[in-house]
Amino acid sequence: MRNECAHLEEVLLAARTGSREWDGHLAECAECRDAVAVAAALEGARDEVLAGAALPDAGIVWRRAQFRARREAIQAAGRPITVAQVVAFAVAMGLVGACVGATSESFQAVLAWVSGHWGTAFRAAIADHWMLAVGAVAAMVALPGAIYALVTALSGQGARR
């Protein structure tokens, strides 16, 4: 870090009051000369920019902020289910399915009948086309979620318009 000229503040103050006390220093110190030139250019610039500017009343700015905050809160709260909620829903449905499968007698009976009659052929098909089977299961799990995400994204776009 560099050190600025030790007289800078005094020189600027003198320049502001029209004093010529530091003229000798200014002739030798480029840093102070730059600062005086920049300060002279910017001094009064704020008032000049503000001349003729009509700023909105504080009450208007406040009410607009309130209105926008409420609108954004409504949008945020009404925003449909997030990805996390979709995953939670899928997991819950899987658990329900597993419980029904494990406990329901009629379901077990149907399963036994299917595996008795078709089990051999089914197992052979799975062995030959296991990638297809994995894909089908994945699609069954993912498709409802994907459709839901698409629909909610579209309705979200509609709401923002």
Binding site: G59, A69, A73
Partner: peptide
């Protein structure tokens, strides 16, 4: 109440209107 209604009630700005007016001015 819907979640949206509850969120509207929960909207809080960092200061009240009177404090804001002074700060803005």
């Amino acid at each position: 109440l819907t979640r949206a209604d509850m969120a509207v009630d929960a909207v809080e700005l960092v200061m009240d209107e009177e404090a804001f007016r002074g700060f803005y001015e």
